[in-house]
Design a protein around this nucleic acid. Sequence first.
DNA 1: GTCTATAGATCGATAGAC
DNA 2: GTCTATCGATCTATAGAC
Lengths: 186, 186
Amino acid sequence: MPKIKTSKEEVLSKVIPMLRTRGVQNSSMSELAKACGIQKSHFYYYFNNKEELIKEVLSTVYSYFKYNLFKIIDSASLSLPEKVEKMKLLMGKIFKASDGGCIMANTALETIHLNPSYGKEIQSFFTDFIKGLQGLLEQKYDSDEALMLAEQMVQDIEGGILLTQVYNDLKYINNAVSRMEKIILN
Amino acid sequence: MPKIKTSKEEVLSKVIPMLRTRGVQNSSMSELAKACGIQKSHFYYYFNNKEELIKEVLSTVYSYFKYNLFKIIDSASLSLPEKVEKMKLLMGKIFKASDGGCIMANTALETIHLNPSYGKEIQSFFTDFIKGLQGLLEQKYDSDEALMLAEQMVQDIEGGILLTQVYNDLKYINNAVSRMEKIILN
DNA sequence: GTCTATAGATCGATAGAC
DNA sequence: GTCTATCGATCTATAGAC
């Protein structure tokens, strides 16, 4: 029997798009395992239970987002338009609308009133998202106004992700991103 | 056992807040029945299956929203500020953030990639929501710009409902509503 | 592969209104 | 005696977990 090593990272990367489209409650451990090409029992070798799996998924997404976001924002070499362009690419990766939208928003709405244990990661994600945009805006606006605008942008984008899925039409998320770009670049 | 008549409407009204907070998948027929003070089996006297129950819930919410929305928008006797004020009240009823936010958005994100049968009602809801706001805006903007602004408002509000739940802080939805008010009233 | 709990769903029975 | 609202018991499938 050849031992093919499946890494935890590999499992997580296969599980994330599944959870993003199907949601937490609608994804059974069996389905998730099958999507990874492993036995369900092997899943419990990596994760003690489903809740732990979800937590690791959320913290994986969060870490990835946070690292790349601040790499852009804090870069000394990038111009503002270049930063905006890279932000758009990053958001495109995180918010695959055709693929279920924003896993943070989806998980928040699905679980927040039932299992608060995911709340910390979700809050951190949105806090950093807002902070990142605020940072870009502070080149042209004072701190308070930058914060308010950043919050508005995140709301616009998340609402756009919702409508994009409801109507299966990318224009809503695209419009939100255009508005963001226009305000940041003046 | 005495014969106490429970109406379908009564059942729906008790089930709606439950579904709004807990979501579709997280609300079992037993729990829903218990919340109504009836046996699970009696639920199937009113609804053939869970899917039918959810459909009736969504169409109840949609009908209520649609009727009241256009009663405000199309009123000949109300001034624009009065209309905005009444809109705010209506939205407050539909989007009880402390009670789970927007059942249409929640259900959309939870089910859209799994059970498209709820899609029609959800789309109609958002279409009317946008149309209503567009109607108010057309007193001051041309039709195209009014539509774009209305879409932006809905996205801002829905994103605000999300953040309000994530942070348990009403400021996000309140800010979105303030922005809406300001733009409509100039 | 097996455990246990629970999901959605169905059935038959019963108590009263007509 | 039938019709209507209700309940308790039960079935089958599948969930998470080991």
